[in-house]
């Protein structure tokens, strides 16, 4: 048999990112590469800098130092050469926001931050499509209903406003709204946080399926190691703004090397 093709193009190249609000508050000297099709989990205790790092990666907050480079060519054939590599904070804000709006996706921990609570579920799902220029109401609506089914929401509620939905339903709606344009790269901050266990399980299963079907690359922040085990291929462990250990998810959870990771893993029952 032939050697398997294991090389994956680098999608996101994170170089020495620092964003500090105070000593050990924020994130410091973070270096890693995200490969196409990979789900990278960022775990660590509360206040360790996970969300800060995610904001910097997602283009929402400029770092004090370092670069975030997005390689658009990764896994694709034809693209404008000049645009093949984007240095996230060297390109203008216009380009950066367009990237986040059109090619990337961001799932907030609190669905209220990611949804328009006053407009209908259908409009929420359709917004990114409309931003991309889709101008057919009937198609937008059909796509909206299809995605509601996909995330296990009743398509009959397409005209209801998200504030009439439960927390778990809102979170699923936010995910549908984000994934409807099939972004290549998705950032998620505690996507299952604050949900009860059975809702969380549905959501996890759904995310696993979507990752596989859409070939998503994901950076996932969570402090829940069970969630990390189920979703992430690879983990990065943060403490006081720094990365203390990275590796294959199973290795980090089953054979942690760093003192802090061992403590983190042992303080949780069977992740």
């Amino acid at each position: 048999m032939k050697k398997p093709a294991l090389e994956r193009p680098v999608l996101l190249d994170v170089q020495d990112i620092t964003r500090l609000y105070g000593p050990a508050k924020g994130c410091e000297a973070i270096d890693f590469q995200l490969h196409a099709g990979e789900v990278l989990g960022i775990v660590g205790e509360s206040g360790s800098g996970k969300s800060t790092l995610l904001r910097v990666l997602a283009g929402l907050e400029a770092p004090d130092a370092g670069r975030v480079v997005y390689r658009r060519h990764a896994g694709e054939d034809v693209l404008d050469r000049d645009e093949a590599e984007l240095d996230l904070y060297a390109i203008g804000e216009a380009r950066r926001r367009a990237l986040l709006r059109l090619e990337w996706g961001l799932v907030h921990q609190n669905p209220r931050d990611g949804l328009r609570m006053g407009v209908s579920a259908g409009a929420n799902i359709g917004e990114r499509l409309m931003a991309q220029g889709q101008r057919h109401y009937g198609q937008l609506r059909a796509t909206g209903q299809e995605w509601m089914r996909q995330v296990e929401l009743d398509p009959g509620r397409i005209d209801d406003a998200p504030r009439t939905f439960s927390g778990g339903m809102q979170q699923r709606l936010q995910i549908a709204r984000t994934l409807v344009t099939r972004p290549r790269l998705v950032f998620m901050d505690e996507p299952t946080g604050g949900l009860d266990v059975s809702v969380q399980a549905r959501l996890l299963d759904m995310l696993r399926t979507l990752v596989r079907q859409l070939g998503l690359s994901v950076v996932l922040v969570t402090h829940d190691l069970a969630v990390a085990r189920l979703l992430a291929h690879r983990l990065m462990v943060m403490r006081r703004g720094q990365v203390v250990e990275t590796g294959l998810t199973d290795q980090i959870l089953d054979d942690p090397q760093h003192e802090y990771t061992q403590l983190l893993v042992s303080s949780v029952l069977t992740p």
Binding site: M1, K3, P4, A5, H35, T246, L248
Partner: peptide
């Protein structure tokens, strides 16, 4: 493999899920 070998101790973490 027919066309060469693969060393697991140096395999980068990202390559494991494909393997």
């Amino acid at each position: 493999f027919d066309d060469g070998t693969l060393d697991l101790e140096t395999l980068p973490a990202y390559a494991w899920h494909g393997l």
